[in-house]
Nucleic acid binder design. Structure first.
Lengths: 205, 205, 205, 205
DNA sequence: AATGAATGAGAGTTCATTCAT
DNA sequence: TATGAATGAACTCTCATTCAT
């Protein structure tokens, strides 16, 4: 949908009213905060609105309905994660070094953004899931798949289906993150080395 | 519409124990079936009752409320799983053999009981979770912890905290099960060997 | 869905709980009353429930949703009308006498049941209308169509399409009823004769 | 959606009358179009504004609220109808000819302006109705009443209360229009003759 | 013990109206 | 004048729980 650019005020400083980006972020923030506080089941449109400091109806200006709000937030987080993930990566390093970098980034990300994690985890088994949204989210991590394939070509990583590799990585990283979040593993280099070693030993040829 | 004439009250020798157990199992079965069909969110007391062939009110005779029903079912499944898990295990075999046996049992169990799996997975992030219940569930798997400790004493398994070992095992087994359920990995010995090898390589010293 | 007949109380006076017919009538009555008071637009489920002396949720035990409630009431009124309409009719009388009888009945019915009229009128342009329901309603008045056809065969009534006859009758009766309801025409035999004459003159050959 | 560059404010000679009228007509047109498309219940201020190519708030510059908008449109249509109705009428013709002319005009008007009809019909039982507005609308048709009175004085039309005559005419014309709109009566002279004859026979002495 | 109708709080969503720009 | 984001009351409908039978 296009909009009208209004110039009637003949104002040189023409700031378009724009459907406030800040507001969308306030909604996202409120939703994440609520998910962490009360779980996915505790999210209601009324509560999100109150937490974000606006009226219930306002949510429906920015999102068609609850489902769309949830899916948008999911995609937003995934994009953000993918962006962070690719920043400052040096893919020319030896494979194991690259993987260690990635592994560390992932765990660090999770630690710093526990609300996001809670949301993402609960999203997957929710009735809101949208296949198209998930597909798009998956594509953001293509560079990651490339690294694995490179490792397989160099005979460093087990030559098994990518599905199996992904399942293995996702399972371990997920659970390791949970350990850190629950303070059952400390947040230091030794601890990371330990976890990476387990993961890597299973992966390598 | 047919009708049953109930005579319980007219019976002088009124032992209800057996009946109760049957009813409770009917409720459990109905709940599992519904979880698989419509997800955790689709479970309502009315639906459980209908699926189990009884009135809504009857559920409240056997369970104080929905939360208790869910938690009871969780514990019931965990106990069942632990029982199956320990049956026919020969702990005198070499460690790796024992672990392979366990691994296989776990994945097989998951495949045969997909309704149970759906329930357990969704339970964990639900608002129904009860810490005491989870603790009890954990204790059922003590024999498993013993095996791991034995492996560490024999210098076969990495000498890291049990928490880390458990996180690693739980993460991989979970994801591997999902692969099988989604038919992205076949259900045969080769496939199991592949998965076990990955898992074991990460675990071993 | 099966049901249980409970006899455990060994009560000789076994009154089935039955989804209270009285309640349905209370709902109908409340709906009619509200339609008259505040128009079709003023009907809300909450108000119907309050007027009928029950909780909102209770309405949904008896009717799937608002639409079904409205359509059920419509059909109920139409059936009632058709029943009244056919009672005490002597179809052996000369045609004009039969028609006068019908005409009188219709107007009398309308006068006695002004709430019903308000409802029926507003139903027709509402978003609730259900074609199947209307078709069934139409069939209830078959005996009426038969009379008209008989009149046409006897060359007493204009030989035009039934649609046209019905439009003519429905239009005049409708408006005449409104006159009486608004007290712009008295409710006596002279007045009825006048109205019937106008109607009949247009109808006859 | 296109964009308008508005310069009104920059114009020193700012006469808005013409503009206003255009806007009001755009609003009326949009409202009629929506009534036809989605019924009276489908009209929302937001939709009217969008259809009319303006902002919601703008509607409130021209009309105090929704009720006033609807009532204004009603009166506007009635006035227009009355104007059309009186154009090209030759009241010197014999009474029956004049009536036939009127009857034809009315039905034709309905056929040509089905959106208007949909609106008028639904207006009558709406919560927006305003008595004063209706009274004014009625007065527009005075010339029509005069014709009827003339007919009564000439002993051509039944000597009954004007109310009864109006009810009779309004009822039949209404229903006949509906027949034509639903394509259950063709739009030709024979068809019009048939309908007029029915109506006239009821009316004449 | 078993029933299922009844309850009513609370969910998601819509929309007439306001108001800062 | 014109805008359209913001508001919040009011709507329909759901569901865990109760209770008379």
């Amino acid at each position: 949908m296009e909009r009208f650019v209004k110039m009637n005020k003949c104002s040189f400083i023409c700031r378009m009213r724009a459907k406030d980006k800040q507001k969308i972020e306030a909604i996202y923030k409120a939703t994440l905060s609520l998910t962490q506080q009360m779980g996915f089941g505790g999210i209601t449109m009324a509560r999100i609105a109150r937490e974000a400091g606006m009226a219930t109806g306002t949510l429906y200006i920015y999102f068609k309905n609850k489902e769309e709000l949830i899916n948008s937030l999911y995609l937003y987080l995934k994009r953000q994660k993918a962006k962070n993930f690719l920043t400052d990566m040096n893919f020319d390093n030896p494979l194991k070094v690259v993987l260690k970098q990635m592994f560390t980034k992932m765990l660090m990300g999770i630690v710093n953004e526990s609300a996001e994690l809670a949301f993402l985890e609960q999203y997957h088994r929710s009735p809101f899931i949208d296949e198209a949204v998930q597909t798009e989210a998956m594509q953001l991590f293509q560079p990651f798949f490339d690294i694995i394939e490179r490792g397989q070509k160099e005979f460093l990583i087990k030559d098994v289906k990518m599905d199996l590799i992904m399942a293995y990585l996702s399972g371990t990283i997920h659970e390791f993150s949970a350990l850190i979040q629950d303070n059952r593993m400390p947040l230091n280099e030794d601890s990371f080395d330990l976890m990476f070693t387990m993961m890597w030993d299973g992966l390598k040829t």
